[in-house]
């Protein structure tokens, strides 16, 4: 009995947006009297950082400092429609909606600034530091705060914008399957190295080396967070997790974390990764959805690595110690 090492890899693609489209998200953006901008949505942040990246997208589009953007989301009385957070859709849908709303608000802001500075809108630019100035003439400037104040109290104008993104529905042809199902595709390739204990059947993942192609990253730290968290979840899916341990039987269904086993902190190997950015044609600043794909490539990579280590062909998950030992028994039986 021994410990055997193996390497495996897998290449996957992943669609962005709800399958076949028809999943709109809206955004409203308005300036406060003091030149902050409120982005009003009803999108849901599950922890992936939606509020953060929508603030980044709004600040980038408006040309204002990030800390002057307030994201107000999660109330159906105030926030316009969002289909929801799933299908790797929200950065793409909500991000595009925010760009549209913020661009309209920026235009309104520049029109007020133009009136105050007595120049034309086309001559103005923002410095991203809270000021609007005439291109090439930085001293001819007005602050965003002053502009917003003037809009409210002198000119009686709103600085606001409306945005929506919809990929129109594309029904699937019932005969051929012809359809336009997604907005873009992200890509991943993961290499996993494992060590299998042939006596206990236990599999240890020694490391992940992965490349991800995700379009423009809105926030690389949050992309990395998805990558590492996704690798961990993929490891659990590949080796341990199930609500039906004797599937298809329904017996022994776990009802707690003691019996629904997931990898612990000590089981987590290093995750080396490289992130490539190939722009999506229709994503916000070229972004693609990343949150789901990250779980998918580690699973077959681990199974391929186990098969490589043992010279067997396991074709099911989770690859529990029992599955490993049965595969080894079968191999031994076939050899005799």
């Amino acid at each position: 009995m021994s410990k055997l090492r193996g390497t495996g890899f897998a290449a996957v693609n992943y669609p962005t947006g709800m399958h076949l489209g028809g999943d709109p998200t809206q955004s409203l953006v308005h300036a406060t009297t003091s030149g902050n901008f409120v982005v009003t949505m009803s999108s849901v942040d599950l922890g992936q950082g939606l509020k953060t990246i929508l603030a980044q997208i709004a600040a980038e589009t408006l040309g204002v400092p990030l800390d002057t953007v307030i994201v107000d989301t999660g109330d159906t009385d105030t926030g316009p429609h969002c289909t929801g957070t799933f299908a790797s859709r929200t950065t793409h849908r909500a991000g595009n909606a925010v760009i549209m709303a913020a661009a309209e608000a920026r235009q309104a802001m520049l029109e007020v600034a133009a009136e105050k500075l007595e120049v034309s809108v086309e001559d103005l630019e923002t410095d991203g530091q809270g000021n609007i100035h005439v291109k090439g003439v930085e001293e001819k400037a007005i602050s965003v705060a002053e502009t917003a104040g003037a809009a409210h109290f002198e000119l009686g104008k709103t600085i606001s914008g409306r945005g929506i993104f919809l990929k129109t529905p594309s029904p699937m042809d019932p005969e051929t399957g012809e359809s336009d199902p997604d907005s873009t595709q992200a890509h991943a390739c993961t290499v996993a190295e494992v060590e299998v204990d042939t006596e206990t059947g236990n599999v240890e993942v020694l490391g992940f080396k992965s490349a991800y192609e995700v379009g423009q990253q809105v926030n690389p730290a949050l992309v990395k967070g998805q990558i590492v968290g996704g690798a961990w979840m993929g490891m659990g899916h590949a080796l341990q997790e199930t609500t039906a341990p004797y599937y298809p039987a329904i017996d022994h269904a776990p009802g707690d974390f003691q019996s629904y086993v997931m990898p612990g902190a000590a089981d987590m190997p290093s995750v080396e990764c490289e992130v490539l950015e190939i722009a999506s044609r229709n994503g916000p600043f070229g972004a693609k959805g990343v949150g789901e794909m990250v779980t998918n490539s580690p699973i077959p990579a681990i199974v391929n690595a186990i098969n490589n280590a043992l010279g067997v062909r396991i074709t099911r998950i989770p690859v529990t110690p029992e599955v490993v030992l049965r595969a080894l028994d079968e191999k031994a039986a076939n050899a005799t």
Binding site: A11, A186, C189, A211, L276
Partner: peptide, 20 residues
């Protein structure tokens, strides 16, 4: 499903992982 591939990046991603 009779849609042309757009924003392709699988080849580059595989090559990057191979290098890593």
């Amino acid at each position: 499903h009779q849609k042309e591939v757009e924003d392709a990046g699988m080849v580059e991603t595989i090559l990057a992982a191979a290098k890593l």
